[in-house]
Design a protein around this nucleic acid. Sequence first.
DNA 1: ACAAAAGTGTTACTAATACACCCATGC
DNA 2: GCATGGGTGTATTAGTAACACTTTTGT
Lengths: 233, 233
Amino acid sequence: MSADTDADTGVSLAVSTVIFALRPDPATGLITLWLPLVKRIREPHEGKWALPGGPLTADDDLATSAGRTLERTTSLAPKYLEQLYAFGAVHRSPGQERVVSIVYWALVQSDEAARARDGQNVAWFAADDLPALAFDHNAIVEYALWRLRNKMEYSRISHAFLGETFTLAQLREVYEAVLRRPVDPANFRRQMASSKSIVATGRQLTGTRHRPPRLYRYNNAVQLADLGPLADH
Amino acid sequence: MSADTDADTGVSLAVSTVIFALRPDPATGLITLWLPLVKRIREPHEGKWALPGGPLTADDDLATSAGRTLERTTSLAPKYLEQLYAFGAVHRSPGQERVVSIVYWALVQSDEAARARDGQNVAWFAADDLPALAFDHNAIVEYALWRLRNKMEYSRISHAFLGETFTLAQLREVYEAVLRRPVDPANFRRQMASSKSIVATGRQLTGTRHRPPRLYRYNNAVQLADLGPLADH
DNA sequence: ACAAAAGTGTTACTAATACACCCATGC
DNA sequence: GCATGGGTGTATTAGTAACACTTTTGT
């Protein structure tokens, strides 16, 4: 760390956010991962879709800046937010100015995301079927997807897609949608039970076509994800 | 991402590196984790020890900048280098200028690190017994240690501490030093064998006090660590 | 009664662990 | 030979996965 400023070097700093939500695919009806993108209204890459973000403002922490971007583009609050990576290849932005992007990734609750309407220059896309995006944003989303799917296997972030209470089938549906493979209901139930991350509310979900499933809630004594010493923030 | 520069906002960008090597503790003789620190020769935090680093230069990629820092402070080449985190809390640097630090962590070969001599303002410290460092660098090292120890359990980075060939006892010693717990030699052998990450050279290490151990080398077909889509860089 | 999803039980398999034991070398 | 670390064998355990089976509701 030094007192030199980047005014000298001409490196600018931006914060972008990869925002994931689960939505039913209009074509197949299956639940899949979606994310909101913003259409660029000026060069470089004018007209292309890009991750929502903007320059780091002087009085915002990095995560605060990412959360603000999320609120601005989706009018939603993240249920999970984590730093993804800092991208800073010299030539990643065409033109004279070099841009280093610190990218966050976020999960928003599915039912809230379903209510979010597309804005003027904002649209939601299926995460696994994106068009050619601006800058290196395709690679960034690919990495975010990899991280999400990895973290799904060894943490409790699945809860971030759901509301206060949920059935085991709903929670399992989250796993199956993100990991794109079937999960055995019997074994899933036991894994969740032994992990202590869910608590039975005693209530049941009524109005289903068949046997009413029990409702559970997240056990707040368990962290969503183990961030180690970083958890303090 | 935008065309605005941080010259407006007064945020400066630095790259620092946490450099780990294994060394015998002069007091106990046990192999432990060490890292080089640089004494600050100007405010803020003049006189305190800090992570090696400096402002991001305009024509270096982030990892290149981290590697350059490493070479400058230790005259060594990293056998493993990975981005750790971007630290950007508003008030992490006292004074008027805000600094965002993109921190890398690196592993250097133990025997090379043993030859490295302390420079004018550079000294090596036991990673688990650091003095009060400048800025938030204590927290950064703590996080780097957490990441290293985690990664030790599910990747092959242990090889980065060793040379071209090594015995299983040497590799096991790396695990024990980093994780600070004994590892069963018999089970360790089988784990390494089944992981396919080591290959027997056919040669043996002679000159030991007892039965000569076989020499192995790293299987380059296996990645040191799974970085996912990021592995391309 | 029947269909369908909720939920339980059982078995097989795999990987981690603990530890007894044999092997090869220097002294 | 004997001490010492190198190296092999084996039993126990815990966790994962596959799948048959029972339960409870709406229709």
